[in-house]
Simulated assay, not measured.
Amino acid sequence: MALAVYVLGFCEGACAHFLDLARGGIHAYAAFATVPLQVFFVSLAVLDPVVVALVAAARPEGIRLAAGVMTLDVTANWIVNWPQLQADPAWLLRPVGLLPITLFGLFVITTAVPVLRTMKEAVVHPAR
């Protein structure tokens, strides 16, 4: 079940980044992000589908990559949204943007170790 949530979440993220790039090109994030953060957000158009492929194949590397990507993604989104949050704390409660990214990131980060443990056990003790 957790793997399905990972796949859906990273598919949504990939689509969002593809749309951003289709609309604004590689400078889609220039209005609000520093160059390193712009590079990161653009790279998510590649990283998110890689996570989807690895997780869909039930590869432990996909879970590790998912946790790393979401740690960086949540951090980057909080950095770019921080000025808006200081001006209007209710900004966090919007159903699109920082809140779902943060919740999905927390889900991935908190489930990564149990999912990896379950994958390892499945290899050691395969179902008969």
Results as ranks from 00 to 15, higher is better:
residue 1 M to Q: 15
residue 2 A to E: 13
residue 5 V to E: 08
residue 6 Y to D: 05
residue 7 V to I: 10
residue 8 L to R: 14
residue 8 L to G: 14
residue 10 F to N: 02
residue 10 F to S: 00
residue 11 C to R: 07
residue 12 E to F: 14
residue 12 E to C: 15
residue 15 C to Y: 15
residue 18 F to R: 05
residue 20 D to Q: 09
residue 22 A to T: 11
residue 22 A to H: 10
residue 25 G to A: 09
residue 26 I to P: 14
residue 27 H to N: 15
residue 29 Y to W: 10
residue 29 Y to F: 10
residue 34 T to S: 03
residue 35 V to G: 08
residue 35 V to Q: 10
residue 36 P to R: 02
residue 38 Q to L: 12
residue 38 Q to W: 11
residue 39 V to F: 06
residue 39 V to A: 09
residue 40 F to A: 12
residue 40 F to P: 12
residue 40 F to K: 11
residue 42 V to Q: 00
residue 42 V to F: 01
residue 44 L to R: 04
residue 44 L to Q: 03
residue 46 V to Y: 09
residue 48 D to S: 05
residue 48 D to E: 03
residue 49 P to W: 07
residue 50 V to F: 14
residue 50 V to D: 12
residue 54 L to R: 06
residue 54 L to D: 02
residue 54 L to S: 04
residue 54 L to M: 05
residue 56 A to D: 02
residue 56 A to Q: 04
residue 57 A to N: 09
residue 58 A to F: 14
residue 59 R to N: 13
residue 60 P to M: 07
residue 60 P to L: 06
residue 61 E to L: 13
residue 63 I to L: 07
residue 63 I to E: 06
residue 64 R to D: 12
residue 69 V to L: 09
residue 69 V to M: 10
residue 70 M to N: 12
residue 70 M to G: 11
residue 72 L to Y: 12
residue 74 V to L: 01
residue 75 T to E: 13
residue 76 A to N: 00
residue 76 A to H: 00
residue 76 A to S: 00
residue 76 A to E: 01
residue 78 W to M: 02
residue 79 I to F: 09
residue 81 N to W: 10
residue 81 N to A: 11
residue 83 P to L: 10
residue 84 Q to I: 12
residue 84 Q to H: 11
residue 86 Q to W: 02
residue 86 Q to A: 04
residue 86 Q to S: 05
residue 87 A to E: 09
residue 88 D to C: 06
residue 89 P to T: 01
residue 89 P to C: 02
residue 89 P to S: 04
residue 89 P to H: 01
residue 90 A to V: 00
residue 92 L to D: 02
residue 92 L to P: 02
residue 93 L to V: 13
residue 93 L to C: 10
residue 94 R to W: 11
residue 96 V to L: 15
residue 96 V to G: 14
residue 97 G to W: 01
residue 98 L to F: 00
residue 98 L to N: 00
residue 99 L to G: 05
residue 99 L to F: 08
residue 99 L to Y: 05
residue 100 P to R: 03
residue 100 P to C: 03
residue 100 P to G: 01
residue 102 T to P: 07
residue 104 F to P: 03
residue 107 F to T: 06
residue 110 T to P: 01
residue 110 T to A: 06
residue 111 T to L: 05
residue 111 T to G: 04
residue 111 T to C: 05
residue 111 T to R: 07
residue 113 V to A: 10
residue 114 P to W: 01
residue 115 V to W: 09
residue 115 V to K: 08
residue 115 V to D: 11
residue 116 L to P: 00
residue 116 L to G: 04
residue 117 R to C: 05
residue 118 T to Q: 12
residue 120 K to P: 11
residue 121 E to I: 15
residue 122 A to C: 14
residue 122 A to E: 13
residue 123 V to A: 14
residue 124 V to D: 14
residue 125 H to D: 11
residue 126 P to A: 03
residue 126 P to D: 02
residue 126 P to V: 03
